[in-house]
């Protein structure tokens, strides 16, 4: 086992991580991740709970028929599937374009120094 890589206290004795963390480049990477992931998380949780709450407190509205036996509740449920697929796809695109290049650059430099 590569014991020098063991987690926990000890390994962070050198200050290189601290320096990287303070750098503008890393700040930008963190911002690109957080400004995308955090609001989106809040967004889909709110959207999901809108669905949960409407299901219990707005039964009549959810039961409104749209097409044959398909009602609003059903359409809402399918919409949750669609938004989940879309968010997953959108995040993958964002990560590939905005996160991976920055992360790789920082990682390569850190490893070149070591």
């Amino acid at each position: 086992m590569d014991t020098e890589q063991e987690t926990g206290s000890g390994p962070s004795s050198d200050r290189k991580y601290r320096e990287v963390q303070q750098s503008a480049e890393f700040g930008e990477l963190r911002r690109s991740h957080r400004s995308f992931a955090f609001p989106l998380t809040v967004g889909f949780v709110v959207w999901y709970f809108l669905y949960v709450l409407l299901s219990i407190y707005a039964g009549d509205f959810m039961g409104t028929k749209l097409l044959g036996n398909l009602n609003v509740a059903f359409a809402f449920g399918i919409a949750q599937f669609v938004t989940t697929f879309l968010i997953a796809w959108w995040y993958a695109r964002h990560a590939a374009a905005k996160l991976d290049p920055k992360a790789d650059a920082i990682k390569n430099r850190l490893e070149a120094d070591a």
């Binding site: 206290s9 962070s12 991580y17 601290r18 963390q21 992360a103 850190l110």
Partner: peptide, 16 residues
């Protein structure tokens, strides 16, 4: 804040 610095950098970049 050194331990958190290491965790944060590693978790976002994959370094180490």
């Amino acid at each position: 804040g050194e331990k958190y610095a290491e965790l944060e950098v590693r978790s976002l970049t994959g370094s180490g």
